[in-house]
Design a binder for these strands. Sequence first.
DNA 1: TACCAATCGTGAATCGTTTGCAGTAGCCAT
DNA 2: ATGGCTACTGCAAACGATTCACGATTGGTA
Lengths: 150, 150
Amino acid sequence: MTLAPQANRLAFRSFDEAVAALRERGMRLSTARRLALEALFAAERPVSAEWIAERLKIELTSVYRNLEALERNGIVRHVHLGHGPGLYLLVGEGEREYLYCERCGSAQALEPEQLDPVREQIRERFGHRARFTHFPIVGTCAACQVAGGA
Amino acid sequence: MTLAPQANRLAFRSFDEAVAALRERGMRLSTARRLALEALFAAERPVSAEWIAERLKIELTSVYRNLEALERNGIVRHVHLGHGPGLYLLVGEGEREYLYCERCGSAQALEPEQLDPVREQIRERFGHRARFTHFPIVGTCAACQVAGGA
DNA sequence: TACCAATCGTGAATCGTTTGCAGTAGCCAT
DNA sequence: ATGGCTACTGCAAACGATTCACGATTGGTA
């Protein structure tokens, strides 16, 4: 029941760089894989496997297999906001972390540095090195606090 | 895809108090439900629906139904540590929050106050009111940092 | 003690994800 | 270019976690 292993982090911002990274790992660039990668670049937000499969007419199975392979190789990762399917995104787009509002379902993406002070505090108090990349910080967003009163 | 609604929090520490809370909500105390509640009190840690069903020889379906009803009524809640099934626990035992180590799979329970400064900091910076009751704070525990070097 | 809704057990459906298998197609080396 | 090795594909079926539909029970109340 361990979470996704922490593959060495890559950094790329273009499709070509992602392909290069993939090649370095000895992976092939099949049609399905290319399409999936392109879709992830186009999406610019975490998307589900099903979203990719439907939109590209690729077998869902194949999408999962590709996402898993890409994740194993540190090119892709996934997050769980709320319940529902895991959402995939490119590692190269940054190690963004999320604030998820359980009231309205919105997710606010943060650059890692923004949470560093929080991380620091947790580390000091509990010795635990925290990452909010896999699960978001769940709670109530500012707007919903005003709206709902809680 | 919203998370479990925030039912009004109850506070009880004994089985009888839990039953009283349940009665107040117009719920019956069926055999299966009583057994499930007793099991939760006995467990003193988050447990899966399957764990309860197996140990008590209650239909898994019934366990899920009861946990869901109890959760809707604010008597029980569940957490997701890592992947795997949701883990249920009594709300009355406190709003404990968890630090989960993705390396060794251990979970450290914290009393809510212990995380209040962290919460405060998040609130100041992002306006977000954070709760770590549904998803834990994932990362690397102190022991694993020493052992593994990362 | 009889009633009626809440709850039960059984079984089947659903959702998200993984696996097995036989065929196909990237990539590399001639 | 051509051929071969093997990573990959689609299809189908299995999977774990959870939910739903049903008619049979049973807990609480009158």
